[in-house]
Amino acid sequence: MMKGETIVFYLLAALTLVSAAMAVGTRRIFRSAVYLLSSLIGIAGLYFWMRFEFAAAVQIVVYAGGIAVLIIFSVFLTQRAGDDMPTPPMLRTIAAAGAALLGMGLVMLQLVAHPFPTPAVAEVDRSVSAIGRRMLATGDDGFALPFEVVSLLLLAAMIGCIVIAMRTKPNQP
């Protein structure tokens, strides 16, 4: 008999993969966004399953609450309800599926053949305060520099978005 945890894992994996496949397969763009969202939530569930609660919460906040809403908004602004996307030409579908399957096969061959080192026994403390201390530490295992670089990147992205989205005055060419 399977343990409850195992059943939950398989359910989450199925949710993630099936909805991801449907997200790239469906021809209705809004449904595609919703399937993508459920796939992202499935991944957050997998993080929860691995006891990485902080990563799961960040995933839900940023992806489900931010990026998915952004994508849905852009769908609202650029598509008409009821329109289906055109089916891609058969040749391209076959070529893409072939490439994806081939790559998948190669990666899986490598994965099965490669022995991964056995884990060190002690699990490190993953509470939020420990994460915060590591995040702002400047020593060998600190992440202060990437943290600052990411914050700069976010600032640059914000300015870039404002500049792109700013409406040019209609009377100017």
């Binding site: 919703v34 969202l37 939530i41 609660e53 902080f54 799961a56 919460a57 960040v58 839900i60 906040v61 489900a64 609450g65 931010g66 998915a68 809403v69 849905i72 509470s127 939020v128």
Partner: peptide
């Protein structure tokens, strides 16, 4: 252990 963050995360699903 992330109680409050969990609440803010899940409440953003409402908009979906």
């Amino acid at each position: 252990n992330i109680g409050v963050l969990y609440v803010t995360a899940i409440s953003s699903l409402n908009v979906i």
